[in-house]
């Protein structure tokens, strides 16, 4: 069963990564690429939190010193390089 729709990551890939020692959301993401696709985890992030819950003592509250980083939406490099220019220009 697919968990991360963007990167096509299966539940068993996530379970395997946890069994191989991934203890945090970040570690699961790095190993499986779940949550790293174009929607940036908007669909699967909560599912990853739920998947890891039975395997860890870390509560959702604690996993939450969340690590969202800009850009939170996809942006092309061309437009990124334009950023900083004022909208009136």
């Amino acid at each position: 069963m697919i968990i991360c729709r963007c990167e096509e990551v299966l539940l068993r890939d996530i379970i395997t990564s946890i069994e191989n020692g991934a203890e945090t959301l970040k570690a699961i993401k790095m190993e499986t690429r779940a949550g790293m696709g174009i929607c940036q985890g908007r669909t699967c992030r909560v599912l990853l939190e739920q998947a890891i819950a039975p395997y860890t003592d870390i509560t959702i509250q604690e996993t939450n010193n969340i690590m969202y980083k800009n850009p939170v939406r996809p942006i092309s490099l061309a437009n990124l390089s334009r950023s900083g220019k004022d909208s009136s220009q």
Binding site: N70, R82, S83, G84, K85, D86, S87
Partner: peptide
């Protein structure tokens, strides 16, 4: 959103 405060749009505007 960058301090203090600049709201960044995906077409490069802010």
């Amino acid at each position: 959103i960058y301090p203090k405060w600049k709201v960044m749009l995906n077409n490069g505007e802010q």
